[in-house]
Amino acid sequence: MLKVVNRLKPASKTLVFAACLAAAGACTPVFKNHGYIPPAEELAEVKVGVDTRDSVIEAVGAPTSSGVIRDSGFYYVRSRVRHYGPKKPEVVSRELVAISFDDRGVVRNIERFGLEDGIVVTLDRRITESTIQGQGFIRQLLGNIGNFNPANIPGASQQ
């Protein structure tokens, strides 16, 4: 019996070491990059007052998005997001290059922004507002007692 116990000790030590190594590896952050911004060398080729929309696309590539108004501008956005275990993903860095145009479609301005330049703006909010907030199930059920009308039941015969 003592021989079996002595044989399990090295194996259990290896198993514990492997489990600790796997746990430590699972706690390393994972970074994901999204989007594209042109490098500074390519942006230097774009001349304010000279280049047009087509020449900008040719020089630095198609924008990530463009303005809502037709002639407002091109926007290049890059984000770096850190995923760390079960925590909520965190935006570590975000860069935006905005190229605006005048009425003739000629470059008017080139600007670069980062997270440190302002507040986070929610671009898309998909929340359905509810009129029953703060009311429990029983309160909702009892609140509908006087509102029942058999004529509103689908398929009920109307007399």
Rank of each mutant, 00 (worst) to 15 (best):
K3D: 12
R7K: 06
K9V: 15
K13G: 14
V16S: 03
F17D: 09
A18K: 04
A19G: 11
A19L: 07
C20R: 10
C20L: 13
L21W: 02
L21A: 11
A22G: 08
A22C: 13
A24C: 07
A24I: 09
A24N: 05
A26L: 10
V30K: 02
N33T: 15
I37Y: 00
P38T: 04
S55M: 01
V56Y: 01
V56F: 00
V56T: 02
V60T: 05
P63A: 06
S65M: 10
S66M: 12
G67D: 15
V68W: 14
F74M: 07
V77C: 02
S79K: 07
R82C: 03
P86K: 11
V91T: 11
V97T: 01
S100R: 05
S100I: 09
F101S: 09
V107A: 03
N109K: 11
E111T: 04
G118K: 05
V121T: 12
R126Y: 10
I127Q: 05
T128F: 15
E129V: 14
S130K: 09
Q133D: 07
Q133H: 12
G134L: 03
R139G: 07
R139T: 14
R139F: 15
I145E: 06
P150F: 02
N152G: 02
P154F: 12
Q158T: 00
